[in-house]
Amino acid sequence: MAGKSGRSINNIPESPIKKLIFGWEGILILVFVGVNIFCKWFSEYYNMFNLLRQMPVYLAEVFLMLVMAFILVMGEIDISVGSTVCLAATLACIISNAGAPFPLVILATLAVGTCCGLVNAFILTRFPELPPMIVTLSTQIIFRGIAEIVLGSGGSVSVANTAGFKAISGKIGSVPYILFLVVLLAVVAGIILGRSTFGRKVYAIGTNRLAARYSGVAVEKIRFIIYTLMGTAAGLCALFMVASSYGANTTTGTGFEMDAIAMAVFGGISSTGGKGNMIGGFISAFIIVCLRIGLGQRNVNGQVILLIIGVLLIAAVALPNIFGSLRKAVKK
């Protein structure tokens, strides 16, 4: 090729482990250890056995975080998932009560969630100029609205035949199935986001949508897939929600979207897009789960736990920015 200067460009990367340890993930691991030490000190019941026993309810929300991470990396948001959980849980109970065999209940619940996701996906890709916040705000109201209609004036439903739901909340030894499932799906999601070409394209969309499109990334196709999967994850979450309470009501899943977003954002996944990874999200999810269990064991009000999560969340997003601008100011 043209006029070579023979310049050589370095292509040896820094050690990724070093990057993780000295990055946000390293801090998160420290926080995780700190939270566990604190909980151990705070509650005499805080031990492995109780942790595993109490975990399933909280783990259901981690499913949501796994897909929410993709949406946030794209620089978008889905605040309809809590309502999707409600609708899927409601229908799961009703289908089960109608006498459907349990495998069918599972399929139907996932299908309901997926359909809700499809609605979002369809609207958002058909009208890409609409902000996801508004579209999912309206579907948030609609999905829960449908659940309200289905549930009728009573506002709740319980499962008559709990056998199937009992089965999925079973354990191997003292480890609940759901933990295996969460870890498995987190690994899969982490590999897809961090290592696959699909994940790379998701980052490209979140960094610069237009440039991604010019580079041959099928932006709308990817958005469609992710929003649909978000619904599927909500269906999965709904299944385990029902398994933990054998019923559903109009407030099932309220605020789950915010919890999922908080987990991801605390894990370093920027809501402005293009930044963060699944490792951070996963560690932060477990920080929040452990904190909830530990504080809950000493009957600390759920609201106080939310307060702590709120403070952690704000600290997590504000501190890097504040330090960044301080560093700049010092340099000046």
């Binding site: 948001i77 916040m133 915010m258 977003i261 908080a262 954002v265 920027s270 809501s271 402005t272 009000n301 609201q303 106080v304 939310l306 307060l307 999560i309 709120g310 403070v311 969340l313 704000i314 997003v317 504000a318 920015n321 504040i322 601008s325």
Partner: peptide
């Protein structure tokens, strides 16, 4: 601090409600 509005107000949504 340059925090995105949705995240900032979400954090305070938890905090104020708890207060």
């Amino acid at each position: 601090a340059g925090v995105p509005p949705i995240i900032a107000s979400m954090g305070f949504m938890y905090i104020y409600r708890a207060m």
